[in-house]
Structures are given as structure tokens and as C-alpha cells.
Design a protein around this nucleic acid. Sequence first.
DNA 1: CAGCAGATTGACT
DNA 2: GTCAATCTGCTGC
Length: 190
Amino acid sequence: MKLSTDFYLQPDVVKISKDLLGKVLYTKINGIVTSAIITETEAYAGVTDKASHAYGGRRTKRTETMYQIGGTAYVYLCYGIHHLFNVVTNQANIPHAVLIRAVKPLEGTETMFLRRKKADLNRLTTGPGTLSQALGIGVQHSGISLLKDKIWIEDQGIQINPQKIQMGPRIGVDYAAEDALLPYRFYVHM
DNA sequence: CAGCAGATTGACT
DNA sequence: GTCAATCTGCTGC
């Protein structure tokens, strides 16, 4: 079943990050459905997190989406090339978000191969930029609701052994000083 | 307004 | 291991 608003409005973005492991991310682009199991996430804790685009309450055209209500998709362009997909959480005006860093392909893998061209199965959706490409997610989807039928997340009852959940510092945010050390990254090998 | 660095990836030495 | 690709937004002239 599709995750409800209540899930996205939880105040603890770190807990949501952990709970998203094992959930299934769906996209339906041009009528084509693809889905994948979430295996790696990172939490971005709003205005107090130096690694977040919304640190210090910054608002730009790009980050405006993070200030929307929980359950909104935030997609932005990184290094001018890669689309990174985030799930906005918490109430409106609180810019919490969870970055989806890796997923495991489930349905529509043929479509994913077409979108990724030269990639092999092991590298189809193993990074935040590549999973967006495989699922057909782009900046044009930033700001849409995850409660509708373009992009959404389902709980299919996939059980993750809590002992298998790894945690550690986030990737690629060394510039964020002490916040780079926070254990806000969660991942599970499947 | 120019310069630079970034929540990255893939191709090449 | 090194490096280019190329858009957004911050910093400083």
C-alpha cells in the first residue's frame, strides 16, 4: 500500500530515513511503470544542517520545494548533470528531506536499461544520480506530490532485519564541517 | 558580472 | 587514480 501523509509528517527525519529502507519506490512516466526497493538513504535535517541546501533558512527557486509539506518530491540538478531525488518530510516551512542514494530494481528493468544505455545490472541504480535516470526522474518532477500517481512509495511488507541496517557518515559532504560526521546515512545490503 | 565549488558519474591513464 | 561534463547559487570585485 502507498505510504500516507502521516508517514511523511513525522518530525524525526532520521527515523523516516531508516524506515524508508525496504520500501518500494514507483514511477509512472508516460504510462510506463518502474519500481525499485530502497536500499540506501541519507537524512538532511533542515536549517541546522550545514550539508543541507536549506542550511540557515536559505530559500532559492531551487530549494523552495524543500519548504513544502512532507510527501513532496524534491529533485535538483547536481554538478549540472545528475538529477538527485529527495523525499520532503515534516510540516510545511520545515525543510527536512531524505536523499535516496541507492535502490534495487524490481519492475520495469528493461525500461531502466534503455534509459541507462550502457549500464550493466550491477550499476543500474547504485547511485543517487543513476537511480533517478533509471526511474526516469528529472527536475521536471520537483514539487509534485508523492501521494499521486506519477511518483510514489509503497510499503509492500518487505522486512529488513534491523541488525542488517548499517549506518555511517554521509557521502560527499566533507565541506559541512562537524555535520559531515553525523550518522545520517542508512543502508542495507540485499 | 566573473569565478568557483558542489548531496556525481563514467571514461580514460 | 585523475579528470571533464555543465547548471545553480554564493562570493567578491
